[in-house]
Design a protein around this nucleic acid. Structure first.
Length: 427
RNA sequence: GUGGAUGUAGCUCAAUGGCAGAGCCCUGGACUGUGGCUCCAGUGGUUGCGGGUUCGAGCCCCGUCAUCCACCCCA
């Protein structure tokens, strides 16, 4: 039997309810802050990600689905969205010339990791990016949107971790990294094997290590908080002020280091302990030099991304079987079927969802199907009804049933549906 | 890439090395034109795949594939 590749899932209708609620909440929150949707390609030239995320990052070195096109150029299925949005922004002169821009995106991402709880090879993210200002307000705006989306989706059990990793200048992170490196070099023997390698490549990442030895070492390590330059310190204070003003709880974590190279100043994560070996369901930060490194004008920017499947896990979202159909038509075949088909057309044209089984076995069988579809009404056309061009309208919740002229059916159902008009056809 | 666990009906799972089962689902009946609750009956299997040991393997051994969990890393 053919199966789907590992870590690449089908999403069936029963799950779509919860799934759409998450995406819907995100879209609505983005709209409220004037972010507009952008559709970015599912694949890019490999350089986009290599340059965007950093040549040495784990994602680029071992987690990308990369292949050659027919001309021998290297293409990669996108492992995240920010690099693509930046690439799109830079290559589109119209937007590039605007003083600022707000985008959001959603769609599948691909990473060639071993699947496990909360980790898929194809998964869905939505995210937002702001271009054009270093003002800490925008860091806040980005964080606040993700916060609002979490609340709307019903995620209660989470923490917001916040940090500033400063800028690259020698009196800021640049100098800090040097101190950090020498601190760990003196204790090289106590570091795990991975961290000894990180010591050369990216000493900051040692702070992220969960090995016991390394974790206890970092308690005595110099903290980035004490080594920010005046400008970055002021920026960080500004972000916190905005968060406080909005009563958004956060926990400062001076050791919060993200796996992507492009971050500057603000970094943050929305974390929970309900994701197995994973902990973050959304994360982001500021990336003030990424646009420039893609060949654009120097343009400060902030953004975040969230994992839809992880949010569903954290929210404990249950599958909802049944379609919420408005009407299921039950018929006795022959002339009754002919009238049922005609009535189905009428109902659908009136914006009422209707379904039936032309093979229609017993009434019992058809009623059962109506129940499985969680239909709100059943319209029954048996031989008696068909003879008088009538139908029996049954409310499936109460069991009440009434025989009415077929002509009146659509009008009566429409009146009885409490939310007719929302999500139904309009007139 | 590394480690551990698990693969039996559509689903969830039983079965000392000795006749492959139950619950749910599905179909039908009790109720000849009425869903959910109850009761009864029925359909449904190359026990992931390939070897081996044995009189005999779902069970033991080897290999392989798949899934899950964890490491690593990340949404």
């Amino acid at each position: 039997m053919l199966t789907n590749p590992p870590g690449i899932e089908d999403i069936f209708p029963d799950r779509m309810d919860a799934w759409s609620r998450v995406i819907g909440a995100a879209r609505e929150v983005f709209r409220l802050s004037n972010y507009r949707e952008i559709i970015i390609p599912v694949m890019e030239y490999t350089e986009v990600f290599a340059r965007g995320l950093g040549d040495e990052t784990d994602i680029v070195t071992k987690e990308m689905f990369t292949f050659e096109d027919r001309g021998g150029r290297s293409l990669t299925l996108r492992p995240e969205g920010t690099a693509s949005v930046v690439r799109a922004y830079v290559s589109n002169g119209d937007y590039n010339r605007l003083s600022s821009a707000k985008f959001y995106y959603c769609g599948p991402m691909f990473r060639a990791e071993r699947p496990q709880k909360g980790r898929l090879r194809q998964f869905n993210q939505f995210g937002a990016e702001f271009f054009g200002s270093p003002d800490p307000y925008y860091d806040y705006e980005i964080i606040a949107m993700m916060h609002a989306i979490s609340r709307r989706v019903g995620i209660e059990d989470f923490a917001l971790l916040l940090n500033s990793i400063g800028c690259g200048s020698p009196d800021c992170r640049g100098g800090y990294v040097v101190r950090l490196k020498s601190y760990f070099e003196e204790r090289r023997g106590e570091l795990c094997e991975d961290c000894r390698r990180r010591l050369e490549k990216n000493p900051l990442r040692i702070l992220d290590c969960k090995q016991e030895g390394c974790a206890s070492l970092k308690k005595g390590a110099p903290s980035i908080a004490d080594h920010l330059c005046a400008a970055c310190r002021g920026h960080y204070a500004g972000v916190k002020e905005h968060l406080n003003a909005a009563s958004i709880q956060y926990r400062e974590d001076p050791f919060l280091v993200r796996g992507l190279d492009y971050y500057t100043r603000t970094t943050f994560e929305f974390v929970t302990d309900r994701l197995g070996g994973q902990n973050a369901f959304a994360a982001g930060g500021r990336y003030d030099s990424l646009v420039e490194s893609f060949g654009g004008r120097p343009t400060p920017a902030v953004g975040f991304a969230a994992g839809v499947e992880r949010m569903l896990l954290v929210a404990g979202a249950a599958d909802a079987p049944g379609s919420g159909l408005d009407v299921y038509l039950v018929h006795a075949g022959g002339e009754a079927l002919r009238q049922a088909l005609e009535l189905a057309r009428t109902l659908r044209e009136a914006g009422i969802s209707a379904d039936l089984d032309p093979q229609g076995k017993s009434f019992k069988n058809q009623l059962k199907k109506a129940d499985r579809e969680s239909a709100r009404f059943t319209v029954i056309i048996g031989e008696d009804e068909a003879a008088g061009r009538a139908c029996s309208l049954k409310n499936m919740a109460t069991g009440e049933q009434e025989k009415i002229p077929a002509q009146m059916c659509a009008a009566m159902i429409r009146k009885a549906l409490p939310d007719y008009g929302k999500g139904h056809g309009s007139d």
